[in-house]
Amino acid sequence: MELRTLIALTTGTTLLTCVLAVAGVHSYATGRARRQALVDRLSATGRTTAEGRPRRFRALDRRLRRTRAGRKLELRLAATGLDVTPGEFFVCMLAAVAGLWLAGQAALAPFFGPPAGLLGAWAAVQFLNWQRQKRIEKFINQLPEMARILANATQAGLALRTAIGMAAEELEAPAGEELGKVSAQLAMGASMEDALGELADRLPSRELVVLVTTLVLSNRAGGQVVSALRNLTETLEERKETRREVRTQLSQVTMTSYAVPALGVGSLFLMDGVQDGALERMTGSPAGQAAVIVAFALYAVGFLLIRRLSRIDV
């Protein structure tokens, strides 16, 4: 009798343990799925985009986001507006570095493989900077219209939060997308100062800083938002025209800064084409390698000096 009772008790305990284990696994899987869905929604880096494009290298992407460099890369990619995750960009950059490394070794000489690889990494970073700057310029050109819409909405009696949401719907990208992010943050409980401050960090410019400061101070102190935005609209229009004139005047200098290093690289191909194997013999000795490194350094210094001297902050 006692044996039967012990067997029944053991069997019941085992079944109860199995049921609890299944329930625990199901609860864990459900919670993990909900957490991943929330992360995908907030970071806009889910498995697919709105168009259904599959995300690649998700494991590498998660590892990169845990590092400081990966988080900086994610912020820079967000500022460019590109539909690329940090993992995808990192893999593409490695592929470009490897391709240019092999191309430099095959086309010129084995010595030029590492410099060509470094050139690939530099080109990838410069591409991000170019995309970011282009988006910032486009955003700055939309600032007068944005200020005008906000002024009209606040003059009609709408709250500043509602006016920002209205401007996000009416404006095209990138201003519409960025204001949409601000409106979403405000809807989730973020303060006006934090949401607009994050916008200024993503797309840094003097014009945007002035607009953000005006909106934050007016919202905090309850000042005349309409009159401030009206005056700011005229100022932004004038700065827009000034920036366009300065950019037109400096276009030739900008092209010169890129032409100088291009001539140096072109001379290497010309030298190797005139006499086959000349570069390999030249870089076969320490003196030749040192001469090439010094030449590359001088071309880089010339590029930086031209860019620095032609930089005019408006």
Rank of each mutant, 00 (worst) to 15 (best):
A59Q: 13
N219P: 00
L217K: 10
Q133E: 10
V84P: 00
L100Q: 06
V39I: 15
V97H: 07
A175P: 12
A107W: 03
E51S: 14
A96K: 01
R55Q: 13
C18F: 13
I293C: 11
V314W: 01
L215F: 00
R62T: 07
L160R: 05
A95N: 04
S310F: 04
A278C: 06
A107N: 00
D194K: 04
V260F: 15
R65N: 11
R243C: 02
Y299F: 15
G70H: 05
K240F: 01
L215Q: 01
W101M: 08
L100F: 11
L158F: 10
R47A: 15
Q249T: 09
A175D: 08
A95W: 06
T242Y: 09
V274C: 11
M271N: 10
R68Y: 09
I312E: 03
G113Q: 03
G117L: 00
P174S: 07
T14Q: 12
R34D: 09
V125C: 09
G302S: 08
G117D: 01
V216F: 04
L150Y: 01
L128M: 10
V84S: 08
S251M: 13
A175M: 12
A106H: 10
S310C: 02
K240W: 03
A96V: 01
T154D: 06
L304K: 08
I306D: 02
R62P: 06
T256D: 08
L199H: 08
A278V: 10
E238Q: 02
L15Y: 13
R55T: 12
L64G: 13
T10I: 06
G113E: 04
G288S: 07
G46E: 07
A262F: 15
F111T: 04
R230F: 00
R65E: 12
C92P: 00
E207A: 02
L42Q: 14
T14L: 15
L119D: 00
A95P: 07
A159Q: 05
R244H: 12
A228P: 01
T242P: 01
L232P: 03
M282E: 07
P204W: 06
G277V: 06
R68W: 09
P86G: 07
T162M: 05
G266Y: 09
V225S: 03
L20I: 11
N129H: 12
R55N: 09
Y299N: 06
A116I: 04
L208R: 02
L232S: 03
R71K: 06
T5D: 13
P286N: 07
I7Q: 14
L6E: 12
R47E: 15
V22E: 10
K138H: 01
D272R: 10
T45V: 08
A173G: 12
R53T: 13
R307T: 02
E280S: 12
E237F: 04
L229V: 03
Q142T: 00
T254E: 11
A195H: 05
G277N: 06
C92D: 07
E51T: 13
G81V: 00
P144F: 02
S227D: 12
E137H: 11
I312Y: 08
L304Y: 09
G284M: 06
